[in-house]
């Protein structure tokens, strides 16, 4: 393998990290949203259409994709923050399916099942690093703020959150909107990286791989999605049988992790460290 292979693997890792953070932020706030794949689709198509059809420059197109993600998520959040648990999951799944089916249906705009081809490759490792860096900064800022504390409380116990004056609905809505922005941003960046997009790639499979990296990594610490994505991206490269059976391994990992390490790798390590430090202190 040459260096180029590793670089493109690293690029894929950066893109998947971005998607994972779109999924992470909602789960962190206790929202069962799986709409991130839809935001990625919306951002991806918006960017591809703006660049290939209207000759818009890459930064403007990606900014528009991000804004569109924010707006769509903002509109969605109004009705969805009223729902809970499995109902949120089903509603957002329906939304993903609506976006995918529109991708197929609106041929004039999206190219239908053929998708959009010949998108110029205007994004490289550097741009992806900058974008992920910005997302990481946002995540750490939230983590250290009252907003992060509110998210953590809502995720763990909505009744307690209410009793402390935290509005569950507002927290959910904010998480929704951030998730939409990140999803739109990385959907747009992906379009300018992969040459062609089609509706099917924003469906159930993408949604599962985003969820898998969060479950594997953890939903409580910012490093979690990075660890989860790193493992899932690297695993198929380690051995050929692993690559051939990727869905099987994803499936087994999901079952084993959620049953035996329900907080994911990073959160479990953090908890272990806290326990050990506490044991030393007391």
């Amino acid at each position: 393998m040459g260096l180029g292979v590793y670089q493109s693997l690293f690029d894929v890792f950066l893109l998947n990290c971005g998607f994972a953070f779109s999924q992470f932020i909602v789960l962190r706030a206790g929202v069962f949203s799986i709409a991130s794949a839809a935001y990625a689709g919306i951002g991806g198509y918006a960017t591809a259409i703006l660049v290939t059809r209207y000759g818009v420059s890459a930064p403007v197109a990606v900014a528009a994709a991000t804004a569109l993600g924010l707006i769509v998520a903002g509109v969605l959040s109004i009705p969805l923050a009223r729902l809970r648990g499995v109902y949120q999951a089903i509603a957002t799944l329906a939304f993903v399916e609506i976006v995918v089916s529109l991708g197929f249906y609106a041929e004039d705009l999206t190219g239908g099942a053929m998708g959009i081809n010949g998108i110029p490759k205007l994004v490289g490792t550097g741009t992806l690093c900058v974008a992920l860096g910005a997302v990481l900064y946002l995540m750490v800022a939230i983590d250290r703020s009252g907003l992060g504390r509110a998210f953590d409380t809502v995720r763990q116990d909505e009744t307690v959150a209410g009793s402390l004056g935290i509005s569950v609905q507002r927290s959910h809505a904010i998480a929704f909107i951030i998730s939409g922005g990140i999803g739109g941003l990385f959907g747009g960046l992906q379009s300018l990286y992969v040459y062609s997009i089609e509706p099917q790639q924003f469906g159930f499979a993408l949604l599962v791989s985003m969820l898998a990296s969060i479950v594997l990594g953890g939903r409580g610490t910012v490093i979690g999605p990075i660890i989860g994505t790193a493992i899932l991206t690297a695993l198929p490269e380690l051995a050929r049988p692993l690559a051939e059976n990727r869905p099987l391994i994803h499936g087994l990992l999901l079952i084993v992790i959620i049953n035996y390490l329900p907080h994911g790798v990073a959160d479990s390590l953090a908890l272990l460290r806290r326990r050990r430090r506490a044991a030393n202190a007391v």
């Binding site: 900064y137 946002l138 800022a141 939230i142 250290r144 703020s145 009252g146 992060g148 951030i178």
Partner: peptide, 11 residues
Amino acid sequence: HLLGLPASWRE
């Protein structure tokens, strides 16, 4: 909170 401004971390 979102931008990690001093107002947030001071608080």
